[in-house]
């Protein structure tokens, strides 16, 4: 994972299938959502769902 320094997004590299996924999500907000210190709005949730669909993020067992 690489969060861009200008806060324009985060890019992910899947080392298994070599897929690159770039999400235009505010980097700080994204990290806060992952930490659980902030709730995702609808737009951010859509980004996160995409990352889950692509296998980049995995839902924690508590959420399943």
């Amino acid at each position: 994972m690489h969060p861009f320094s200008d806060n324009s997004g985060v890019t992910f590299f899947n080392t298994v299938n070599m897929d690159i996924t770039t999400s235009f999500i505010d980097t700080d907000a994204f990290m806060a959502i992952l930490d659980g210190t902030r709730l995702a709005d609808d737009d951010q949730m859509q980004h996160i769902e995409t990352l889950i669909d692509k296998g980049i993020l995995t839902k924690a067992k508590d959420d399943l």
Binding site: S8, G9, T11, I20, T22, S23
Partner: peptide, 11 residues
């Protein structure tokens, strides 16, 4: 260009 956009085109 912002970095995320440029990276996507670059990749």
């Amino acid at each position: 260009l912002d970095k995320a956009n440029a990276f996507m085109q670059f990749a």
